[in-house]
Every structure is written in C-alpha cells, then in structure tokens.
Amino acid sequence: MPRYKIIIDIMPLKNVLDPQGEAIEISLKNSGNIKASNFRVGKKINFIISAPNKKIVDSQVQELCKKLLVNEVIEKYEYIIQDEKN
C-alpha cells in the first residue's frame, strides 16, 4: 500500500491570546533595524499514513486532527500530503 508523509501546521486562532508569541516579540525589541512583529507560536506534526490513495489519506488526516491533534476552540491547521519517497 502506498505510504504518504503528512505535514501539519497548527497555529493559534487569530483572536486567541498567544503569550509565547508576545514574550518573543518583547525579547526581540532591541534587534536594531529589524522591525519584526506579530509573532505567533504554533506547532508542526509529521507522520506517515499508509492508504490506497490520497483522497482517503485526506479524510483520515482530517479525522485525526478533529479527534486529537488539533483543538479547534483555539487552533487552526493546514496540512500537506506528500509521497513518502519525495
């Protein structure tokens, strides 16, 4: 069965306070000419799914996100599906 690599990016929703992002922003205030702002800290999860095709993988990834990987009260997610060999 084909194996697919899944890469999920999980980020806090726009309206949710992200104290880690704020702390990073404050600590980088004295970075000379670099004007960096709006830091948000999320997480990245990689794993492999074995399934007959990409369409099935897609629905399985969404199922796993809703079941455990993402808390949609505070987080949003995006993902990409690659052939494992790439």
């Binding site: 306070l17 104290p19 702390a23 009260v73 505070i74």
Partner: peptide, 10 residues
C-alpha cells in the same frame, strides 16, 4: 466547553 490556555504570565 472552552479550554485552558497557558497562563498570561507564562
């Protein structure tokens, strides 16, 4: 309902 985030002060 809802969830518990990191404390504001971290």
């Amino acid at each position: 309902p809802g969830t518990l985030l990191k404390n504001k002060s971290l």
